[in-house]
Design a protein around this nucleic acid. Structure first.
Lengths: 143, 143
DNA sequence: TATTGTTATACTCTATAACTATA
DNA sequence: TATAGTTATAGAGTATAACAATA
């Protein structure tokens, strides 16, 4: 028998299926806004008014710093964000959304939440239980 | 007040955060196996012994058919899968994992489940409840 | 005629290596 | 010396358009 282990395994398996399903849909979400998957990711990561160091972006995306340069180049060229040196450490450059970028981010978030999972299949009580559990699992960014 | 709507929204928000977090980690998972993110996705999609039409792959990845050609070219060149015409409709080509591909897929899945979310934070009872809810939300592939 | 997959082409995404500026 | 970011280069990922084979 594989009692406790079994449930955790099954939960993880379902979460992975969810992950790959969403991954397949990400291109469609961004397409109408002219955003590639990675651009959606970047926009999701930058909360307006909360500048982000480029090095932190590279770490979060698990990609090389040189890649972030090009990524930010293109987003900046489109007027969605700006980059400026950090006052604290002038080696560091932080990026922040422009008003245009902020609006596009809001549109993206709205679009992503437009046709989500059939959460209505769950009762209110279950939704609350789900939120409590996910918060303990996911909300781990002690920010 | 935003009672029922609020919980569904919050749940979706947390699931999206989970999605983007995993998306950031996908490159690391595949790296040691020499797999790009999209290659991980393809391997995850093809269950061994269950051939998949290339057109179906394009639909699931939300990408153009011409892209799948190159994708499958490279995986086939590495000996991870084979492609052959479907007997039923010779326009269609189906792909299937080789034994090597099947082993690599197993390795990938093991690696992905290696250090998952801290599911142990949930009690057994909660884990079961989570599984039941996720099954209703995610397990929608009437296969 | 419509559909599946391929080819040619171009642009984005990504990593490696060498470099600059700052610490 | 070490770190953050850039540049040059090359290969993978992706879309568009034109095409071949099959239905």
């Amino acid at each position: 028998m594989k009692g406790e282990e079994g449930d955790a395994c099954r939960a993880w398996q379902l979460l992975m299926r969810f992950f790959f399903t969403q991954r397949g849909e990400l291109p469609s979400w961004g397409a109408e806004l002219g955003l590639s998957p990675v651009q959606c990711h970047v926009l999701h990561l930058i909360e307006p008014g909360r500048p982000l160091a480029m090095s932190r972006l590279a770490a979060t995306l698990s990609c090389d710093a040189s890649n972030v340069t090009g990524l930010v180049d293109r987003l900046e060229a489109r007027g969605l964000l700006v980059r400026r040196p950090s006052p604290a450490d002038r080696r560091v450059k932080v990026i922040d959304l422009t008003p245009t970028g902020s609006r596009l981010r809001a549109q993206l978030l709205r679009r992503m939440s437009g046709e989500p999972l059939p959460l209505s299949r769950l009762s209110v009580r279950e939704q609350r239980a789900l939120v409590r559990m996910l918060e303990r699992l996911v909300d781990d960014e002690s920010d």
